[in-house]
Design a protein around this nucleic acid. Structure first.
Length: 523
RNA sequence: GGAGCGUUGGUCAAGGGGUUAAGACGCCUCCCUUUCACGGAGGAAUCACGGGUUCGAUUCCCGUACGCUCUACCA
């Protein structure tokens, strides 16, 4: 099995390395909204401070390693524009980044802590731990911890004789190294968002630092790596707050207190219905994506939808994420990446979690489609078109059509319906909307219109409209009753820009052909 | 159960001892438009509860309730 390592993904050229932040997405597959937002806030902070930005993908749990997750995360962040395309994946000043290659490093520090009496060996098997938990379990205390009270009842280097410990180790008995939480101390630290936070050490348990397989837990790895990689700021999700005292203590024990990064614990993104952290399952259940890009779980084959494939613009995606839990104090809601770099401040990030609202997310996308020039997203729309079997021969026409219809498109995928008929005649007509009011007179009207159009030399919106209305007057039919049928003949349904504009763009030949075909079908 | 963190309309939120408590999404009505949108005008809807401090509390303090996270040899 390949170990999923840590990577120094980017070093921006302009950076002066005053500040170094790091982000560690979970490698268990996918990259959810909260993850991207954490990277975004890290990124903005780093850019503001001309700092370095280390992206580390961690996995200390080999059983959860997912093939392809590394590449996927890189792709997502590239799509979002948070890492440059040419960013090096390996190398950098803090190599090695692969966890397996750093294995001895972590052990060395764990052993040091044991030597200093701040950690200890524990030989308890998983079964013994289970047994302890069920033995001490009461109604008041449903989850007994391996802590100051219970550790004296367990098999560890605190309760066993030195000789016995030595024997067990030389015999190869599996063991872990646990931190020894001190008694009656108050651990305090300052969070950039929440201010001062404190914990009583008596209430924190003796977390495992080094696992029986020799790999570190997150607690050890994050402290050792942040120190060695000279991280100055660490932003992570609020779910890490309860384990912060362990990390603070480790920084102290290892003698690195002065180099400890500044912390910011970000609020969680919550489910729109009910409560709780937004999870990947919620996407399916509620009908919206929770990942940046499509993710196929290689183990189960399940596809989890992404914002990109659904038709979101990276600009909109970043924007909506940025303001979900942050606001600059003004009424502004639309921010470009550059504006965010200018205006973002970690202190103004909210303390409380925010429920995700997909309707608002779509609104952001709509706004970005409207404000960006069509050239910006034309390539992706073109791809969408070719998937639908529509090929674009004339790029200039394509761009102007996209420009014409973009205000009607909330998602990039909407362009297929809103603009497809400019390039390909509709295969089906919404006949039901025409038929009830269809008459012989109307059929005749369209025949005459076609004949007149054939002779029309000046193919402009005004000329077509004038011809259409004159003919209607001659036949004594209200133009209003004819416009909807004409629209349906040309586009297939009740949508699209003004109908005479459409006729102008699709041209004389196609206009006449579509009308004739539709008249035949209706009649 | 314990610990930590949180709580302004349905949602995102501004504000912060005296305000008609911004704005946005969504919803509703109207205008524009003989399609759908865009745009414009308007509407309904909010400071979790109880105490204190204060002339005055949505704002400060304390409780309570509720919610969330953690409580793994996962991160």
């Amino acid at each position: 099995m390949v170990l999923f390592g840590k990577y120094n993904v980017l070093s921006l050229q302009h950076m002066k390395k005053k500040v170094r932040v790091r982000f560690a997405p979970s490698p268990t597959g996918g990259l959810h909204l909260g993850g991207v937002r954490t990277v975004l806030y890290n990124y903005l902070f780093a850019r503001q401070n001309e700092g370095d930005f280390i992206l580390r993908v961690e996995d200390t749990d080999q059983t959860r390693y997912v093939e392809g997750a590394e590449k996927y995360i890189q792709d997502c962040l590239q799509w979002c524009g948070l890492i440059p395309d040419e960013s090096p994946l390996h190398g950098g000043p803090f190599a090695p980044y692969r966890q397996s290659e750093r294995k001895q490093l972590y052990r060395q520090y764990a052993e040091l802590l044991v030597l200093q009496g701040q950690a200890y060996y524990a030989f308890d098997t998983p079964e013994e731990l289970d047994e302890m938990r069920s033995r001490f379990k009461t109604v008041e205390n449903p989850s007994p911890q391996y802590n100051q009270v219970n550790r004296i009842k367990m098999r560890n280097s605190l309760t066993l004789g030195t000789q016995e410990v030595q024997t067990l180790i030389t015999e190869g008995a599996p063991y872990v190294i646990r931190i020894k939480m001190p008694e009656d101390e108050t651990l305090t630290f300052t969070d950039m968002i929440r201010g001062e936070i404190s914990f009583e050490t008596n209430l924190v348990d003796d977390k495992v630092l080094l696992k029986a397989d020799g790999m570190p837990t997150y607690h050890l790895a994050v402290v050792v790596d942040d120190y060695l990689m000279k991280i100055t700021h660490a932003f992570r999700g609020e779910e890490w707050l309860p384990s912060a005292p362990v990390h603070i203590l480790l920084w102290q024990y290892l003698g690195w207190k002065g180099d400890m990064p500044q912390w910011a614990h970000l609020p969680l993104i919550l489910k729109p219905d009910g409560h709780g952290k937004l999870s990947k399952r919620d996407g399916d259940r509620l009908g919206f994506p929770v990942f940046a890009m499509n993710w196929t779980d290689p183990k189960t084959g399940d596809l989890i939808a992404g914002f990109r494939e659904l038709g979101f613009l990276p600009e909109a995606f970043l924007n909506l994420l940025a303001v979900l839990g942050w606001n600059d104090g003004t009424e502004q809601e639309l921010f470009s990446k550059d504006e965010l770099i200018e205006k973002f401040s970690i202190e103004k990030v909210h303390k409380g979690g925010a429920k995700f609202d997909f309707e608002k997310a779509k609104w952001f996308n709509h706004e970005w489609i409207k404000r960006l020039p069509a050239t910006h997203f034309a390539p992706q729309v073109k791809e969408l078109f070719s998937n639908e079997g529509i090929t674009i021969a004339d790029d200039e026409k394509f761009i102007s059509v996209l420009e014409l219809v973009k205000e009607r498109c909330t998602l990039l995928t909407d362009f297929v319906q809103q603009a497809g008929f400019f390039f390909k005649a509709p295969e089906q007509f919404d006949i039901a909307s025409v038929k009830p009011k269809w008459t012989e007179d109307k059929a005749l009207f369209f025949d005459i219109v076609c004949e007149k159009l054939t002779l029309l030399e000046n193919w402009t919106t005004q000329a077509i409209e004038a011809l259409f209305k004159e003919t209607a007057a001659e036949k004594n039919i209200k133009p209003g009753e004819l416009q909807l049928p004409l629209r349906i003949m040309l586009v297939g349904g009740k949508f699209g820009p003004p109908v005479f504009d459409i006729a102008t763009i699709i041209g004389k030949h196609d206009t006449i052909e579509r009308i004739r075909k539709a008249v035949r079908e209706i009649g």
